[in-house]
Amino acid sequence: TLKVHYKYTVVMKTQPGLPYSQVRDMVSKKLELRLEHTKLSYRPRDSNELVPLSEDSMKDAWGQVKNYCLTLWCE
């Protein structure tokens, strides 16, 4: 499951381990945003700071799954 905080919160079913490009595509379609305006980030467990997502950091983000849910933020 993927939970995304935006102006409102959406929850989507997804497969764990998807690459950033696929996750961003899913989120942009769900929120009806243009792909270039979809910026995603996540919060590591040991931090209060949001970390921007990229293809490289997506593996780390999937490591933050809690209760089968990855929580992301969209700007």
Rank of each mutant, 00 (worst) to 15 (best):
4 V>R: 04
23 V>M: 04
41 S>F: 15
50 L>R: 08
27 V>G: 07
29 K>Q: 13
57 S>K: 13
58 M>Y: 06
58 M>F: 03
55 E>R: 02
11 V>N: 00
11 V>R: 09
35 L>S: 15
52 P>I: 05
34 R>C: 08
13 K>A: 11
75 E>D: 10
45 R>M: 10
39 K>S: 10
56 D>N: 10
4 V>A: 00
57 S>E: 09
58 M>L: 03
69 C>V: 10
67 N>R: 00
51 V>W: 02
39 K>P: 01
66 K>P: 05
19 P>W: 10
66 K>N: 15
10 V>K: 03
26 M>K: 03
17 G>L: 08
11 V>Q: 10
27 V>E: 03
10 V>I: 10
45 R>Y: 10
6 Y>R: 04
46 D>N: 15
69 C>E: 15
28 S>L: 01
6 Y>C: 13
37 H>L: 14
21 S>E: 13
21 S>Y: 12
44 P>H: 12
72 L>C: 03
49 E>A: 11
30 K>C: 11
40 L>F: 08
9 T>P: 08
48 N>Y: 10
47 S>C: 08
2 L>G: 00
57 S>C: 12
36 E>C: 06
26 M>Y: 10
23 V>T: 00
9 T>K: 02
66 K>V: 12
72 L>A: 01
2 L>E: 06
68 Y>V: 08
45 R>K: 14
53 L>K: 03
7 K>R: 12
73 W>Q: 10
8 Y>G: 15
48 N>M: 13
16 P>V: 13
33 L>D: 02
42 Y>E: 01
63 G>D: 14
5 H>E: 07
51 V>M: 09
3 K>M: 11
63 G>W: 06
28 S>H: 11
44 P>V: 13
54 S>R: 05
39 K>V: 13
25 D>Y: 10
42 Y>M: 02
28 S>R: 00
67 N>C: 07
29 K>I: 06
4 V>T: 04
49 E>M: 11
48 N>D: 14
55 E>Y: 07
49 E>W: 03
53 L>Q: 03
18 L>R: 02
67 N>L: 14
34 R>D: 15
29 K>W: 06
23 V>R: 07
67 N>D: 14
67 N>Y: 09
17 G>V: 00
64 Q>D: 11
65 V>W: 03
26 M>S: 02
71 T>R: 01
53 L>A: 05
73 W>Y: 09
29 K>A: 08
52 P>N: 06
34 R>V: 10
63 G>R: 11
5 H>Y: 02
27 V>Y: 04
6 Y>Q: 07
50 L>W: 10
34 R>A: 13
50 L>K: 07
74 C>V: 14
68 Y>C: 15
11 V>F: 11
47 S>W: 03
59 K>V: 12
32 E>D: 14
47 S>Y: 07
71 T>G: 03
38 T>M: 15
8 Y>S: 13
6 Y>G: 09
18 L>M: 10
46 D>S: 09
44 P>L: 11
74 C>F: 00
29 K>C: 03
27 V>F: 01
17 G>N: 15
54 S>F: 07
32 E>R: 15
48 N>Q: 12
52 P>V: 12
5 H>R: 06
39 K>W: 06
51 V>Q: 05
40 L>G: 02
13 K>H: 10
71 T>C: 09
22 Q>R: 09
63 G>M: 12
26 M>N: 08
30 K>A: 13
37 H>W: 02
53 L>S: 05
66 K>D: 15
2 L>S: 04
34 R>L: 07
66 K>A: 11
40 L>D: 06
43 R>M: 14
52 P>Y: 05
70 L>S: 12
72 L>E: 06
58 M>N: 00
54 S>Y: 06
39 K>G: 10
60 D>F: 08
16 P>K: 13
60 D>P: 04
61 A>F: 09
48 N>F: 10
58 M>H: 03
74 C>E: 01
32 E>H: 13
3 K>R: 11
19 P>R: 08
72 L>R: 01
58 M>E: 06
37 H>Y: 09
31 L>S: 04
41 S>W: 15
6 Y>M: 09
57 S>F: 04
48 N>P: 11
4 V>W: 03
50 L>T: 01
36 E>W: 04
71 T>S: 10
63 G>N: 12
18 L>V: 12
46 D>A: 08
55 E>S: 04
10 V>Q: 07
38 T>S: 02
38 T>N: 01
59 K>M: 12
5 H>K: 09
69 C>F: 01
3 K>V: 14
9 T>V: 05
57 S>Y: 13
72 L>P: 05
11 V>S: 11
18 L>I: 12
42 Y>W: 14
74 C>H: 06
37 H>P: 06
13 K>W: 05
59 K>A: 15
13 K>I: 01
47 S>A: 09
52 P>M: 01
33 L>Y: 00
72 L>W: 02
65 V>L: 10
69 C>Y: 06
63 G>Y: 07
65 V>H: 13
60 D>H: 11
64 Q>M: 04
17 G>T: 06
8 Y>H: 14
47 S>V: 05
70 L>E: 11
34 R>S: 14
42 Y>T: 00
30 K>Q: 11
46 D>P: 08
6 Y>I: 12
26 M>Q: 11
40 L>N: 06
50 L>H: 06
74 C>M: 03
18 L>G: 03
52 P>F: 00
34 R>F: 03
43 R>P: 09
13 K>R: 10
47 S>G: 12
45 R>T: 11
64 Q>R: 01
38 T>G: 05
10 V>W: 03
16 P>I: 14
39 K>C: 12
7 K>N: 14
